[in-house]
């Protein structure tokens, strides 16, 4: 796994609160057996209703950092949501806060989902609207967001940060190492042995 220490790229602003996973990827696109092709449907229904939606604006098409509001990714556990954002080109998300399952899904897929204050988000939003070509860097080693000569604090829970920066965010390999411990643990749980 890659060690993810920082993400640099241009940014797409979507500074709305309570963006739920049904909006990120409408349920009809969950009728699939692979995640391929989900990128183009990200925010599809919102985009249809809002001709000004940032995901349709030419200046944001190459963005890799998404700016969100409070409680980003609430609702369904569908991994299709981060998968569609990744396939659209997103590599990191900065928001005021995240819903937990969505956050866990992002981390497991190697997408840092960092929190920043409302003031920071509004300052970044302002900058991006004025200069869409401005690159940002989300630095997980210093927990700073760099934007030109400005610098802002951001936060990420220690365990997610450790997993990303050490390249161990895909836990499967680690989990597989403990096969004998898993079986031992199971033997001590009454219902695993039918209360015998």
């Amino acid at each position: 796994m890659n060690q993810i220490e920082s993400i640099t790229g241009t940014c797409i602003p979507l500074l709305l609160d309570d963006i739920d996973t049904d909006r990120i990827i409408p349920a009809r696109y969950l009728r699939c057996v692979t995640f391929e092709g989900l990128g183009e449907h990200a925010f599809e229904d919102d985009r249809k209703q809002d001709p000004e939606h940032p995901f349709d604006k030419p200046q944001f098409q190459n963005a890799s950092i998404l700016l969100g509001g409070r409680n980003f990714g609430c609702g369904s556990s569908r991994e299709h949501a981060p998968q569609s954002l990744i396939r659209w080109g997103i590599k990191a998300i900065i928001a005021e806060s995240f819903a937990e399952i969505f956050f866990g899904n992002c981390t497991g897929l190697g997408v840092p989902a960092v929190c920043a204050s409302r003031d920071t988000l509004e300052a970044l939003d302002q900058t991006i609207h004025n200069q869409p070509e401005q690159e940002l860097t989300v630095d997980l080693l210093t927990m700073k967001i760099k934007c030109g000569d400005q610098q802002f604090d951001c936060t990420l829970p220690d365990n997610a940060r450790a997993a990303l920066t050490s390249g161990t965010y895909d836990f499967l390999a680690q989990l597989l190492q403990s096969e004998s411990e898993i079986k031992e643990q199971a033997a001590g749980v009454p219902y695993f042995s039918s209360f015998a």
Binding site: S77, R78, E79, H80, P82, I101, G104, N105, G108, L109, D170, F171, L172, Q174, L175, L176, S178, E179, I182, A186
Partner: peptide, 18 residues
């Protein structure tokens, strides 16, 4: 509730990281 990658983790190891 868990994501699809975690579904794979649980299938393969009956455990997950949390």
């Amino acid at each position: 509730g868990i994501g699809t990658s975690q579904v794979a983790h649980v299938l393969a190891t009956q455990t997950m990281a949390l």
